[in-house]
Nucleic acid binder design. Structure first.
Lengths: 208, 208, 208, 208
DNA sequence: TATGAATGAGGTTTCATTCAT
DNA sequence: AATGAATGAAACCTCATTCAT
């Protein structure tokens, strides 16, 4: 029977999960900055060495966690796309989903941000590829919305790739301003600002 | 006499500068992540304790450095504004200045980013106020360009505050994608993408 | 039939070689201190456990490597003996061969030294015996040169065993001083010092 | 009063000693290989960081310990020199002192050896200088004995520096063969061999 | 025979901050 | 106002070896 190898692989996969569970648990209870490999090991009830048997480095664990986060985010965004009855509404829903995610899944959002803004974190190209590919899939959802809009005659012809990226940058870039409600936003409501930015973006797309 | 107190204040200010000089020196020679308080002390030829007499924490030093950075950035942005012959050109020049700053003054840009994205860093409100005020002044420059455009009849009427913020978010949010030239940008040139984003933003402003 | 057992033994020998090949490869590419059993296993494309099936410990692997080194050294020394036209010249050539070996086969020399100076490494007596036997054969070559010299009438009668050992000790002990060219040697040339030591030793042997 | 600074310096020196005492204690109880900085800290009842406040690295501690060892050795050797009534006897006594030291102060001897044979250990040149200088002083004692012998008419004229080094190399190189009493020495008594080597060296010096 | 997952103590070093002086 | 010694947790990672399969 082929059973033995398969069981082995299953068990190995199970350990990986166990470690990721521990890391995620810590991510959620203590936040991104409070995670050490020793803590992960303790939480997972495994030896430190075991962690390093399954993951090359601490950051590789983070990378997987980020992929998870991106996956969840992709899900949310995808559902937003489908819930919308037309392209404009889809974009609005996507934006809303994004903002919600940044609030409700703050920890995942932190991890995503960690890799997006950290200048120095350098990965083996293969890992980097994989991460960016997840980001790519999110972009593709936005692109889909844009293409839908064009087809529906609501949006002008455009480079959907670039517009999708721009859309994402706007959404993502606005999130941290929530902290500055009282200073930079000068009392302006963050949510309102956010909505305004989306509207403005969509306005720029409409066919005449 | 008031002389004594004044001298005292002057000397105190001098020490602060001494410390900041050291920190800046290190920032530029080693980068943001390689700075420790002990190193700053050594560089400043002061004792560690002295550092803590003049600054509550290491991050407070960074905060001041960030203000410096924002000041420089403000300068660049301001010059861009003035160099432009009309509002559209001004915005383009501002964008260009921003991108250049992120490249040429990478270290200052890192510090700025550090506070913008770091979720947890919590300051005494007065420091936070002061930092945000610097950001504010940059926003005001952008606002000025927008107001100019309106006055010149090139731009439609608008909430300049919000549009200025949006403009900044776009510029700022696009910078890190330089790293992803080969993945998320799918070979698209980062500079081109950046220019596109600016163009698109400006397009959305024009009066009909 | 004896065939099966023989095949078994052959295969076993083959595995051992496979492991030693891997270890040697690493010894030469990374140096003595950078070798871990896991690395050896990876290099040999075997499981770690397998390594431990064929060798009791990591040091046992090194021990075999040392034997190899001693074998090579023996070869060099032996050739030096034969190349010499008389005993004095032979000794000079041996000394030169030794010094060359310490430079050109630095890695093997390191392993040899490792066991010679490491105080604590304790082996099963049989391994120790075997290692020392290799050293013994080198000594015997030197002894041969000495005996030749006596027979040729160049050297006085002597305890060849002790003199051979003394010769070796001098050669071996001088090697590390290469590092101290500028300090302990006080600028004296290491090679010159080495030559001097050999000359002095030979001088002490001559018949009157 | 100047007292304060002096007291500070005294206390600092005291801490250094405290750390060295702990390190030495461990060196003697567990041997060279079993010393970790954490252990030193525990033994010294200090925090790990404190160790690093006083010493740049673990090896710097070893270096000081080695200097201590060399100092003791120098002492023994010096006394041997003075106890001898003539140069020949002095050399014999020095040799004996050396062998005794290698036995009685095995741990110090190990440290000395550690730096003498370790290929990779690299120091700041200043430390290296200081270490070698200690070695130098021992050499100078031997040289003194040689010069005495020349003056007394027992030894021929010679390069005392080189001969002293050679003498040391012989003594030092023979020590580890104590372990090989039953193999390489082929049953020959180590002490006898050692004595023989010294005799032979001295024989080579005599004036005719 | 051969596997390879698991161990876990151990390694060295850094660092922001405090506090007695 | 200034010093600088002291903290000690925390960081990440390695490695020889074992053992159940």
């Amino acid at each position: 029977m082929m059973g033995i190898k398969q069981r082995r692989r299953r068990e190995k996969e199970h350990r990986r999960r166990q470690i990721l569970d521990a890391a995620r648990e810590l991510l959620f209870s203590k936040g991104l900055n409070a995670i050490s490999v020793n803590q992960i090991a303790r939480q997972a009830e495994l030896a430190v060495g075991t962690i390093y048997f399954y993951f090359r480095s601490k950051e590789e664990i983070f990378a997987v966690l980020q992929e998870e986060g991106l996956e969840l985010l992709l899900n949310d965004v995808h559902q937003a796309l489908e819930k919308g009855t037309d392209a404009k509404e889809s974009l609005h829903l996507i934006a809303q989903a994004y903002l919600n995610f940044s609030r409700d899944q703050k920890n995942y959002f932190d991890v995503i941000n960690y890799f997006l803004s950290a200048a120095d974190v350098m990965f083996a190209p293969e890992i980097k590829q994989q991460i960016d590919q997840h980001g790519n899939r999110i972009l593709m959802v936005v692109e889909q919305a844009l293409r839908d809009g064009i087809q529906q005659g609501h949006f002008k012809a455009m480079d959907t790739r670039r517009h999708a990226l721009l859309f994402w940058v706007i959404l993502h870039g606005l999130v941290p301003f929530r902290k500055m409600q009282d200073t930079l936003l000068a009392g302006d409501d963050h949510l309102a600002m956010y909505g305004f930015a989306v509207d403005h973006f969509i306005d720029g797309l409409k066919a005449f």
